[in-house]
């Protein structure tokens, strides 16, 4: 019983983490048809920003650090989009090269500035004591992280469904040509969405920090996870990213606990089936 409850909660917390990672990726892909392979590096950059700022300024709390890192990564992402990506709109292979190239630059810069050690992001003082759930002990921060993911999901939902900006984004996702024809400033919209996606990744990197820590290679560990979630959930679908995150959270957690010998492939086998039999993902409107 304890096993199922604790691992269930673990799955939820990993799912929350994955949503913070992948929602930005999904948003960017949905609107811009751009597989942003820099996304893992943006996430890692956020984690490093959080780890370093929390180490150097002891008065800072993690929420402020997450906001700051989110803004900083959004700014970097915005520059990247304006200066480089915008020239490659019709060149998908060029996009692959440039986004991977950018991720090489970012991860090597992290190594240069902050060395090869893993640097912890401290769990906030007030959340360090474990919580008792049904008589079992569970880390409080992980529960809060699930809350963060849900809050982010709701905020994104309102942004997309209830605001003018959201309406424009949805129009762009559905039909880019038509959106342009009715006077939506698609180019500016691209920049905004790219900043937003990168910013969520950056802030998510800080919030995931107490679980992951900042270390060289974090980008490479996270990027495939973002891709898997988005492919499973359906590209460009917020609901898909949300549900996909938690499904992957469950598969990963229970898979590695119940079938340790399959730990390396447990995430990829289901993905092969999904793509082979439902290429648009669970909630995708368009084919991948």
């Amino acid at each position: 019983m304890q096993f199922w409850i604790i691992q269930g909660l673990n799955s939820l917390s990993l799912g929350g983490l994955l949503f913070l990672l992948s929602s930005g990726f999904s948003l960017i892909f949905g609107l811009m048809r751009l597989a942003n392979l820099t996304h893992g590096a943006f996430f890692m950059l956020g984690t490093y920003f959080g780890a370093i700022s929390l180490r150097n300024y002891s008065g800072l709390n993690i929420w402020v650090a997450a906001l700051g890192a989110g803004i900083a990564v959004a700014a970097i992402g915005g520059l990247f989009e304006r200066l480089i990506l915008t020239r490659l709109k019709t060149n998908p292979l060029g996009q692959v090269l440039v986004t991977l190239g950018m991720s090489f630059i970012i991860s090597d810069a992290c190594l240069m500035f902050w060395g090869g050690d893993s640097i912890p992001v401290p769990t906030p003082q007030s959340l360090q004591a474990p919580t008792r759930v049904f008589g079992f002990v569970f880390p409080t921060y992980r529960l809060v992280l699930v809350g963060c993911a849900i809050a982010a999901a709701i905020a994104l939902y309102f942004l997309l469904e209830r605001t003018r900006l959201g309406a424009m984004i949805r129009a762009g996702v559905d039909d880019r040509q038509m959106a342009r024809a009715v006077g939506i400033p698609v180019s500016r919209l691209f920049t905004i969405v790219f900043c937003l996606g990168a910013g969520i990744a950056g802030a998510g990197g800080v919030l995931g920090g107490p679980i992951l820590s900042a270390y060289p290679g974090l980008d490479g560990d996270m990027l495939p996870l973002a891709l898997i979630v988005v492919i499973l959930g359906g590209i460009g679908s917020l609901l898909g990213a949300f549900v996909g995150s938690f499904i992957i959270g469950f598969i990963y957690t229970f898979g590695s606990a119940l079938f340790p010998e399959l730990a390396y492939i447990i995430l990829f086998l289901p993905m092969i089936f999904v793509i082979a039999f439902r290429p648009q993902g669970l909630f995708g409107r368009v084919g991948a």
Binding site: F3, I6, N10, I211, L212, L225, Y252, T253
Partner: peptide, 8 residues
């Protein structure tokens, strides 16, 4: 990335 499921 996440050791939670192993710790548990």
């Amino acid at each position: 990335p996440d050791y939670g499921s192993y710790v548990a």
